Computed example of a mutant assay.
Amino acid sequence: MSDSRSNPRSKVSWRAAILLAPGNIVAAKILDFTMAGIQLQCAHVLKEGQTYQIMMEVPSKRDASQRTQVVCKATVRYNILSGNEYRSGMKYFDFAPEHLLLLQSWAGAPVTME
């Protein structure tokens, strides 16, 4: 079975956090990463179409012990109930320009910021 995505997908296991509302931050885990989006797992259902601020803890490809906190915005495209947690597909954007090379190293393809 082939993956027809326009952006290569990387299976990852990164810690993350989602700002649901001011003062309400929940833990999450990034499962899949592309330069177009992420799939994350979280105990809370996220509202489809809603944009959240998230933080991804992205390791260096050269040294996994070196991690960078990448803060961005992400819009929920879908939710799937998986056991007692939810998997959400999200399109992320609005990250700091200095994180572009780190993100590209995981995606394997250069892109420009929107």
Score class of each variant (00 low, 15 high):
1 M>G: 14
1 M>S: 14
1 M>D: 09
7 N>M: 04
8 P>K: 04
9 R>T: 00
9 R>Q: 02
12 V>P: 08
13 S>V: 10
14 W>H: 01
14 W>L: 00
16 A>S: 11
18 I>M: 05
19 L>D: 07
20 L>Q: 00
21 A>C: 03
25 I>R: 11
26 V>R: 08
27 A>R: 12
27 A>I: 03
28 A>C: 07
28 A>I: 01
30 I>R: 04
33 F>P: 00
33 F>C: 00
34 T>W: 06
34 T>N: 10
45 V>P: 03
46 L>I: 01
48 E>F: 03
48 E>N: 13
49 G>T: 08
50 Q>R: 11
51 T>D: 08
53 Q>G: 02
54 I>S: 07
55 M>R: 12
57 E>S: 14
58 V>C: 09
59 P>K: 05
60 S>Y: 05
60 S>A: 07
61 K>R: 15
61 K>D: 13
62 R>D: 15
64 A>S: 14
65 S>N: 12
65 S>I: 12
66 Q>L: 15
66 Q>G: 02
68 T>I: 12
69 Q>N: 11
71 V>W: 10
74 A>G: 03
76 V>A: 09
77 R>T: 09
78 Y>D: 10
81 L>C: 07
81 L>D: 05
82 S>N: 12
83 G>I: 05
84 N>E: 15
86 Y>M: 05
88 S>R: 01
88 S>M: 02
92 Y>W: 05
94 D>T: 01
96 A>H: 12
98 E>P: 06
99 H>G: 06
99 H>N: 15
99 H>I: 04
100 L>K: 15
103 L>K: 07
111 V>T: 10
113 M>N: 07
114 E>T: 12
